[in-house]
Design a protein around this nucleic acid. Structure first.
Lengths: 193, 193
DNA sequence: TATCTTACCGGACCGTAGGACCGGTTCGCG
DNA sequence: CGCGAACCGGTCCTACGGTCCGGTAAGATA
């Protein structure tokens, strides 16, 4: 059963309108009613297509997630398979960092609806698992799953926005901090310490 | 101008009732109306005393904050002034960790109202500044302010709850992870790496 | 092209939230 | 004791996410 033409048209209109609103407006001035109005559509139409607002935001992020995931799974090294372990970790951190930066409004919207929406997201679980693997190779002595969560938490969009806007840290400083978190410079731990 | 007796009585009743509700109920089942009802008071009374719900939560946390701050500022070393720098950092991390653990429901309530309520809190600013100082002494080569924020973020109540409840990490594992984040074991960085 | 089935549409509606308002009440000072 | 001010709490207001249902139009069929 294929989707009817008007339904497909409305889905696209809602996605476009929602995207624009999330970019332009402050997060808590974006409401279901305003999205529907901007899309020239009733509120129920939005709900029917996406279940709830969280579903709408996930649908907005989905294509970008897929794009990055493809680069990670089958792109050029070191982000894709192959290459030096250290370079792989750092390339991945950079890619995640840029992803969060580019999509921060949508990611914040995700965090806004539902508790744990950021972590529980299937996409995030993939990011975290991959991060865990890449950390484990470079730093076999640490608790890689925990460290992966900690780094991923440091990459929360709200945290990054806060550091930039209220603590006046610039982007490259934060980026360097994230790298240092996951893989501090220097030799491996000395068992005699 | 001193507070009238009935006003003081109501303030205490609201604090007690709110505390109990936050402990017992799920966070988003706690509403202004229920707090007022549990305190045997009108909603407006709650608002008058505390401005808004965020103010109420801050008032609930305040005495605990003060207690820990006193221990940090003038208690026994290594948490208080004096002692080995490394021990000071680790004692402080333990104290913060326990504080978050003990007060996680209130801290989550804080995070629930208002954006950045956790970081922007005056108390948190003190915690972060102190953390920055203690990190700086032990790890002069790193960006201490950023690392302090990253560690403090790892100590978010919602993050810890998520790791415990959904990732099944036990408390001591998380605690060890936080310590490793702030002060990874091993010798200092090697300039030739 | 005319008809009919059915997926689809959208504005009215619902329950609930935080917070403002205001007539009545009670505290406590002179 | 009496009075003014501080305080009280139920009602009201606005906005939210989400649901309902009578009406509409898409598009398959003949």
């Amino acid at each position: 059963m294929t989707e009817r033409a008007d339904a497909a048209r409305n889905r696209a209109a809602v996605l476009t309108a929602a995207e624009a609103l999330f970019q332009r407006e402050d997060l808590d001035h974006v409401s279901l009613a305003r999205i529907a109005q901007a899309a020239g559509v009733g509120k129920a139409t939005v709900m029917r297509r996406f279940g709830d607002l969280l579903g709408l935001v996930e649908a907005l992020i989905a294509p970008r997630v897929t794009a990055l995931r493809d680069r990670v799974r089958s792109g050029e090294p070191p982000l894709g398979p192959g290459g030096d372990a250290g370079a792989r970790l750092h390339a991945y951190l950079d890619a995640l960092f840029d992803f969060v930066l580019d999509n921060r409004t949508l990611i914040r919207a995700l965090e806004h609806y539902g508790p744990y929406a950021y972590y529980a997201n299937p996409a995030s679980q993939f990011w975290i698992d991959e991060l865990t693997d890449r950390i484990r190779v470079v730093r076999p002595a640490v608790d890689a799953p925990y460290l992966a969560y900690a780094v991923f938490t440091a990459l929360r969009a709200d945290v990054m926005d806060y550091l930039r806007q209220h603590q006046h840290m610039d982007i490259e400083r934060i980026r360097a901090g994230v790298h240092a978190l996951a893989d501090p410079p220097g030799p491996q731990p000395d068992p005699h310490r």
